[in-house]
Amino acid sequence: MTERPTIAPLLEAVDRYFTLMYDNDVSQFDRVFAPTAQLHGFRDAELRILPVRDYRTMLASTASPKSKNAPRLQEILLVDLASSAQAMVKVRVRIDALQYVDYLAYHCINRTWLITAKSFHVERRHEPASTS
């Protein structure tokens, strides 16, 4: 009988992703993304392609949702384990005013689950709360 891979370390990796998206703490970036990762998605009707190093720079230079006391939304919508070393995770996450649905390709590299590809979709743009 084949052993089924444990999902707990993968879920911990997804939690690290959610935390990074909220606090922008790039000191933890290498525990979330593989150095060869690519990001793809449409923003303002144009396909954006970002190498992971550019994404890291962008996070480091942007005020975090945490620093703005922005609402936090994060949910795992799907986990698909292809093997003990490869998985696809679909998540919903709010980053400041934008709510995304992300497809995260994970590979277990040196016993650590890392994102090797991220495909993002802007699902919703939240309006700022009125101050009346």
Rank of each mutant, 00 (worst) to 15 (best):
E75Q: 11
T6P: 01
Y100N: 03
T131N: 00
L20D: 02
A13Q: 02
M58T: 09
A8I: 03
P35E: 07
A37E: 06
H40G: 08
R43V: 03
P51R: 10
T6V: 07
A117Q: 15
V52K: 06
V122W: 02
A34G: 08
D96K: 07
V52I: 07
R16N: 03
R94H: 04
D23H: 10
L114W: 03
A37Q: 05
I109M: 08
S27M: 12
Y103G: 10
A13H: 04
S83K: 12
L20F: 05
E3H: 14
V101E: 00
S132G: 05
N110L: 13
A45K: 03
V91M: 01
R53A: 13
S67F: 09
M1R: 15
P71N: 06
L78E: 04
S119C: 06
P71W: 01
Q38N: 10
C108L: 12
T19C: 10
M21I: 01
R111A: 15
R31W: 09
S84K: 05
K66N: 02
D80T: 08
I7Y: 15
A8W: 11
H126Q: 03
V32R: 00
V14L: 10
Y22G: 00
F120S: 00
A70W: 02
E127K: 02
R94T: 07
D30K: 05
I109N: 06
P128T: 00
I95G: 01
A87Y: 11
V79H: 13
S61Y: 11
L11G: 06
F29M: 00
Y55I: 14
R125W: 01
Y103R: 10
R92F: 07
L78G: 06
D30Y: 05
C108D: 09
L47Q: 05
M88C: 12
H121P: 01
T2W: 13
I7T: 10
H107P: 04
I95T: 01
S61W: 14
L50F: 11
